[in-house]
Write a protein that binds this DNA or RNA. Structure first.
Lengths: 200, 200
DNA sequence: CCTTGATGTTGCCATTGTCTACATTCGATG
DNA sequence: CATCGAATGTAGACAATGGCAACATCAAGG
């Protein structure tokens, strides 16, 4: 009808949930979790401060959705890397994901959104965990192998966290690029339960 | 003097800074970083909502002080463990610290308080990092040894983080207690650059 | 075409961090 | 011992947030 809102969008956004997740994801990475504001995200998209609550019961639920998306992306990255480069490539993909999206990575593994209360998050996280264990099982069989699997996972997870600290990263690089560093660190380890590993 | 505030303390608290850090440390561990409120901490101690700002420029500075204290405690725990039990005991102490104070541990290594802006935090963190590297250097010499040192640190750091997740911890324990699990995982690893290690 | 549910808007409340101005006390100095 | 200044409190206000209730608008289905 003729009564117009000059340069305003239609009353119905059409895909507000996805737009909120994109905006919140960018804000998370740029400003950190504490300064992620639903009001600002909504304002940036051009809807009112309360519109997000039509798509997410509360702020924590939106954060849980961001974390679930993160696990989906991490799972994909690891799977692609494993298909072409094996276990070490898979580990390197894990670290690369963390370094590329540090705040998302922290959200995924932090305590801000307990997965016990968010089913989709729990499912996506569990899927990644199970794929990891399945990928390692042939190389690290038996109960000692399961401990070694946890060690392998701990190694790449911890490396991700430590390299997010710029001082630690700077001290470790010693003129190498990050991919070279990650490979060198991953190759410095042998697992007591391991079958002989193909070199990279 | 006789004009009394029944059951109220004197106008000057006397050690408000330390009291705030204790109260905030408890609130951090109990409710998480997002729900740590300086107003509530002040109220619980019996001072006004603005009194904390006489001791800390802002909320982030108090959090930085909490993180700095955490690094001091972690350093002490690791040093004591190393003195009596060597490198593996030191690694186990690191994991134990994280599991005992998960929110503090996350604060210490998270992005909420950048250590670039908080000198005491930077110093305490650096001291722990340097001690760790010094402890590992005799066992893991040379440039490959430094990569292996980072791997060793990543291993215990990652293990700490992963075991904070109750599902991961539950799946990994398989009837063992946590100390046994941690020992088994740490022992499942060999370092390519290592001298022969004394068994535990 | 009407009704209903989905999805927006508006206004309000409680709480927070932090600012300014003022009040009180303690310690140092003369 | 008295005074002064700094340290350390209190009181009030502001801007921002998350989230609630009530109302408004639109799209889809019968």
């Amino acid at each position: 009808m003729a009564t117009s809102r000059p340069r305003q969008r239609a009353y119905h956004h059409g895909d507000l949930q996805a737009a909120l997740l994109r905006a919140a994801g960018r804000m998370l990475e740029k400003r950190g979790l504490a300064r992620l504001s639903l009001r600002q995200a909504a304002g940036g998209i051009g809807v009112s401060h309360n519109a997000p609550y039509r798509h997410f019961p509360d702020r924590d639920s939106l954060l849980a959705a961001l974390a679930a998306q993160g696990f989906a992306a991490l799972g994909s990255a690891m799977q692609e890397a494993a298909a072409s480069g094996g276990l070490r490539a898979m580990g390197a993909a894990y670290v690369r994901f963390a370094l590329r999206r540090p705040q998302r990575f922290r959200l995924m593994f932090g305590s801000a959104v307990p997965s016990a209360r968010h089913a989709a998050l729990r499912e996506n996280a569990t899927r990644v965990f199970e794929r990891l264990v399945q990928a390692l099982a042939p190389q690290l069989p038996g109960p000692a192998g399961r401990d070694a699997s946890l060690a392998a996972w701990a190694l790449v997870h911890g490396l991700s966290q430590l390299l997010l600290d710029e001082r630690i990263a700077a001290a470790a690089l010693r003129g190498r690029d990050r991919d070279t560093l990650v490979s060198a660190v991953l190759e410095s380890i042998r697992f007591a339960a391991a079958k002989a590993q193909t070199p990279p």
